[in-house]
Structures are given as structure tokens and as C-alpha cells.
């Protein structure tokens, strides 16, 4: 057997190790493409042309395309905001306004925080606070951001609100507990009040039951 075959064979565990050690999901996808290319070359050099063709078609092309779509749609946080605030975000005109600056600042802080965990932020606009709350309950969005005075409040955390209202004008309600844990660690840079909806609901139900 020729000596170059041994070196080509050694490339396969090398690239496989790179895929395993990569932490960024998008980089890992490209590494998977590299692994597919190297594996196809190895199979072709070893004489298995049909296996090499299948590896290139399925392993390199189909797998990474499907995985890219899956990663792109799963690593996202959908934040529900009210219509006028969302429209302000869409247009780049910076008119002096306290609430606008605040939402802009909050979304920027969220984006940088989520980028550390390789996630994206997607904004969804809703016309009124009731629709916003319905969307959170219907699991259309992962979190909502609005001023507490505008939204439907529950008696159970009104006490907590009144104390935090002076510090932060905006309140973020989060449905997903893991997201709440991630955001809780960097709460000071966000400038908002965080409320875990699941925890509040659970507390409500335990308080309601005798």
C-alpha cells in the first residue's frame, strides 16, 4: 500500500476531533462539511467510489443544509414588543424620546448577551398589551417587553412591581426558564425587571390550592 494513504487516513480523525471540540454550532456545521470532504476523499482513494459519492451527496450537502436550517430556527429568542415601539426599532430615525431609547438600549444589550450563547434576537410586534400577553400565553413568543402600567397585572406580584418600578420603566416577562436563568446572570446591564412567567404561574397555582 502506498504511504500517502496512511497520511490521508490520519486526516479523518483529525477533522473529526475538530468537529467534536468546536463549541459554536455554525462553525461546527462548516467543520462537518470539511469532515465530509475529507471522508469522501479517503473513501475514493481506498477504492470505494460509491461510498465516496454517497458521503459527498448526503454527508456534505444534505446534512449540513438541513442542520443549518435547524440550528438557525432553534437558536433564537422571540421577544414580543408593542407596535409603536417595534416600528421605532424598524426605522433608524432617532427622535428624542425616553421610551424609544430605552427599548433600543434593551434590545442591544439583549443581542450582545444572547450572542455569547450563539443565539439571535427576533422582535415580534403586537398592536396592544392584551395581544402581547395572549401571544406569551399562546407560546408565540419566548418573552415580552412592555411598561408594567400598560399590561394586565396579577395581584401576586404587584408588591414586587411597586418596588422595582422606580428603577426600571420596562418589564420583561420570560416564558422559558433556561432563558430566564441566562438573563438573570447579567441583569444589571439589561436595565429591566425580569419575571419568570412559569414560576409566577406555579406560585399562583400552589397558592390557589388549599
Amino acid at each position: 500500500m502506498d504511504s500517502y494513504i496512511y497520511i490521508i487516513t490520519a486526516l479523518l480523525p483529525l477533522t473529526a476531533g475538530m468537529v467534536v471540540l468546536q463549541v459554536n454550532p455554525y462553525h461546527a456545521l462548516i467543520m462537518r462539511g470539511i469532515l465530509g470532504a475529507v471522508a469522501a476523499m479517503l473513501y475514493a482513494v481506498l477504492g470505494a467510489a460509491d461510498v465516496a459519492l454517497t458521503e459527498a451527496l448526503v454527508g456534505t450537502m444534505l446534512a449540513i443544509t438541513l442542520y443549518a436550517v435547524a440550528v438557525r430556527s432553534s437558536l433564537v429568542m422571540r421577544l414580543g414588543v408593542l407596535q409603536e415601539e417595534g416600528m421605532e426599532l424598524g426605522s433608524n430615525s432617532f427622535v428624542e424620546g425616553k421610551s424609544k431609547d430605552h427599548v433600543q438600549q434593551l434590545t442591544n444589550a439583549l443581542r450582545t448577551l444572547l450572542a455569547k450563547h450563539y443565539m439571535r434576537l427576533e422582535l415580534a410586534c403586537y398592536p396592544n398589551p392584551k395581544a402581547l400577553h395572549q401571544a406569551l400565553l399562546a407560546k408565540e413568543v419566548h418573552a415580552t417587553c412592555a411598561q408594567p402600567s400598560q399590561r394586565i397585572t396579577k395581584e401576586s406580584y404587584e408588591n414586587k412591581q411597586s418596588t422595582s418600578l422606580e428603577r426600571y420603566p420596562y418589564q420583561t416577562q420570560i416564558r422559558v426558564h433556561r432563558l430566564y436563568e441566562i438573563l438573570q446572570t447579567e441583569l444589571s446591564s439589561l436595565g429591566t425587571t425580569l419575571i419568570d412567567v412559569d414560576a409566577v404561574d406555579a406560585k399562583d397555582s400552589t397558592e390557589g390550592n388549599p
Binding site: I30, A37, A44, A56, L57, T60, M61, I64, T65, A68
Partner: peptide
């Protein structure tokens, strides 16, 4: 030859 074209196609899609 087929792998050459498929690799480029995968790159474009990605």
C-alpha cells in the same frame, strides 16, 4: 468530478 461540483453546491447553499 461529481464530488467537485457537489462540494461547490454545498458551499453555495450554506
Amino acid at each position: 468530478a461529481i464530488i467537485l461540483s457537489v462540494g461547490n453546491a454545498a458551499l453555495m447553499l450554506l
